[in-house]
Nucleic acid binder design. Structure first.
Lengths: 365, 365
DNA sequence: GGATGCGATGTTTACGTAAACATGGATTAG
DNA sequence: CTAATCCATGTTTACGTAAACATCGCATCC
């Protein structure tokens, strides 16, 4: 009898472990997983467990001799606080969940890294919550820490509307901050200044003398991609420039390469703004293979400023995103919401700036 | 009275939160963070909380009408199981901690990604435990989930011996699997077949007719880097080839570029084996800028086979690492240790294979 | 010098869950 | 028809911690 209940996705439903066979240790003969509780420490130190608790939490009101005795007992017994009990009692998990769809894009990784660092500094741990959308391979029943109470707050690094069709649902009442997505009306959003970054990139190319700028956009469902594309178009239009047809990739290098192949056929193309550095790498390769010299024949600007960008051939002019700052503000945001217990909305913008390198030049004469 | 206790790093010691000011909600006036317990659901459904527990865990022995009633109550009340209570009772956190030093190297990220996916499939969540070594900026007192009991197992993606000087310590009694490090005598290790991968890379170059192969190694403290370098040297020696001086980078593209600049000065260098793809990118750039054509003048082989490698200029011949398999075996390993309660040792090797692309060719005539 | 207060420590209790055990009604075997 | 079962459900208890409250002794104040 596999789980046939029609309501398998009901709140609190939990996957019975693979049929219940051979799941537990054969029997309890093995050494019981080290269990040293406060009570043990207390007994060993000749104090009450409450005093141990005070020492453990660094609270005042414990005389130094006692404190030393307790600390010694902790060390001798190898005591480690049980965070489950602590969380149960305090209602805080000191954990922030980070929901993301993939670690394949550098932007996500950089953001995650920054969040982790910032959170650690505040005494919070990060739990990764991978999201599988139905169209993916069937990672069905994937365990998510959101179905249950296990995180104090959530940071979402993906398009919120995609969450609706995914395996996780944002529980109500949990502080949320969303990165680079269109959710300012529902959640607090931290975003890099996509518009300004795009403006700098396109302006840079136009100022170099290019008649217009082509664009390789990110995937349709990405808000950041859309924002960059919209801004690109708006600038060209407001400047009275022709707007070339837009190409689309999926952030991957390979998709950038494909877009580059298409651009090779456009003899009029002298400048390209690519929505991220990874795709730009593919574009560069296509141009190289097609004999189109960068930046002599065509200029390329990327977005992200990943560490590798300065070693592309040629080194890539790109828009720098301050992922550290973004991650920091995310953590700050959820912590603030936790403390005030008040959900927030609206968007915070993190500045971006252009990093001119060797992939841009005036158009060929 | 800041925390002056000399034993700040004692077990169980916990950083008092930034002086205790303005940490808690001003007062408890706000809506109490949604608290729906099993008891609430039970009351609402007119059953005992134990029955709710059974339904929640998908246990048998609940008649369908009752089950439906409970599920309905859960939905209506918005019940979410409290994982802290569950963990406290069961002693399992259903969480695996992943210790790593940086997310800047693609290898780490790919491994982490694979681990996350595999773990999710088994119903485990991943907590990231960033490690700060003292030489880093002073992320002192960074909270780690290892000081306390909060993970069921640990996967280490870094050199174990570096842990000794870091802010985290591996607690005893917790299942551990180490990735690509020299710890087979203390822990279970999952490693890609560094030696075989290196052999294939070097052999490939020699077979193409190169007299010898230069090497750009990873950082000194890296076991993987050392292993690759040792194998490289051993092959050359056993084959009676001259062993050129070894260059060293730190896995970063920039360091690869620096190594490439040095190699430019070696007119006799026709083949280079670079210890990872990111550094290889830097080497390619240096060669390009120096007018050394790849692969016409010099051949380059990388290691990792990151997604971008096929779009390097030229597309990089490299050794493919099966990160998915590696991650999978890590999770498998810790779960097995958890179930049997028996620590393991020894090394598991994941096969690697050469992916020939356009960066290698016979030496110039 | 006795009331006062405060600082150090102990005692009680509740957090939410799930294992272990208990109950009671229905079904079936003899 | 009764006893033995069995199944659905209820009751009790313990997990480790920390808040709240209680106590006790000593120093201070007038």
């Amino acid at each position: 009898m596999m789980s046939q209940h029609p309501a398998d996705d009901a709140p609190g439903q939990r996957r019975p472990e693979s049929d219940g066979t051979a799941t537990r240790p054969a029997n309890g003969v093995h050494a019981p997983r080290q269990r040293v509780s406060m009570a043990d420490v207390a007994r060993h130190a000749g104090v009450s467990s409450q005093t141990v608790s005070r020492v453990s939490n660094g609270y005042p009101g414990v005389v130094d001799s006692t404190r030393q005795r307790v600390l010694a007992a902790m060390r001798e017994l190898g005591y480690r606080p049980n965070s489950a009990a602590r969380a149960l009692k305090s209602g805080e998990f000191r954990t922030i969940g980070v929901i993301l769809f993939t670690l394949a894009t550098t932007g996500n990784v950089r953001t995650l890294e920054a969040i982790t660092t910032s959170a650690a500094r505040e005494g919070y741990a990060i739990t990764i919550i991978p999201v599988a959308v139905p169209t993916q391979d069937g990672v069905h029943g994937a365990f998510t820490r959101l179905g249950e109470l296990a995180v104090d707050a959530v940071i979402v690094i993906m398009e919120v509307h995609l969450l609706d069709t995914s395996t996780v649902t944002l529980p109500p009442g949990v502080p949320v901050v969303v990165v680079s997505a269109d959710a300012g009306d529902r959640y607090s959003v931290v975003d890099t200044d996509q518009a300004d970054g795009t403006r700098q990139a396109v302006r840079h190319l136009l100022d170099l003398g290019h008649r217009t700028v082509w664009h390789v956009a990110g995937p349709e469902e990405s808000f950041a991609a859309g924002h960059r594309a919209d801004t690109w178009r708006a600038i060209l239009e407001s400047d009275g420039r022709p707007v070339p047809p837009m190409l689309r990739g999926d952030w991957s290098t390979e998709s950038g390469y494909q877009a580059g192949l298409q651009l090779l056929r456009e003899s009029g193309c002298t400048a390209v703004f690519v929505a991220n550095d990874q795709m730009a790498l593919g574009v560069l390769r296509a141009f190289h293979e097609g004999g189109r010299r960068v930046p002599h024949d065509v200029s390329v600007v990327g977005f992200d400023d990943i560490a590798e960008a300065s070693s592309f051939i040629p080194p890539l002019t790109t828009v720098h995103q301050d992922f550290t700052e973004t991650g920091h503000r995310c953590v700050e945001g959820v912590l603030r919401q936790m403390r005030t217990d008040a959900p927030e909305r609206g968007t915070t913008l993190v500045p971006t700036w252009l990093v001119p390198r060797a992939s841009t030049a005036p158009p060929p004469a």
